[in-house]
Amino acid sequence: MSREDAPKSFNRRGFLEWIIAACSAITAAAMVVPGLLYLWPAAKGGKAEDVEVKGGENLKPGEHSTVQVRGKAVIVRRDPGGLAAYSAVCTHLGCLVKWDAGKEQFLCPCHAAVFNARGQVVSGPAPAPLPEYKVKDVGGKVYVST
């Protein structure tokens, strides 16, 4: 009788093969998981805090400036009533809106979304208002909170 036909050794072999297959599967899974996590973008920039707006002290009433706050574009403007800051990222497909001081509106160059001075949608395809940022003036310097 050859080894393959022997029921007893077949069982032992079968069991061993099963163990090896299971261990190989676990090993493969254990290698794939860290690889997938590696691909997940590592967060940059740390905790939320106030970020100083470069050149903010030169912002005169009626003027505005597009700045990057932690990688995101923000429009900071000095209205007669004080400072205001809105995300410049159009909520439609992510183009940057421009502040039209004459019309007091944000205009998106991509698909013509229009937002009013408080970031609310006036017309066009944008599904949501522009998020507002907290902004403050400390001794002439302008800070935006993220």
């Binding site: 597009t66 700045v67 990057q68 574009a73 183009c95 940057l96 160059p109 991509c110």
Partner: peptide, 9 residues
């Protein structure tokens, strides 16, 4: 330029 979206993309 990440701070300026051009027209007509």
């Amino acid at each position: 330029n990440p701070l300026l979206t051009p027209e007509h993309i």
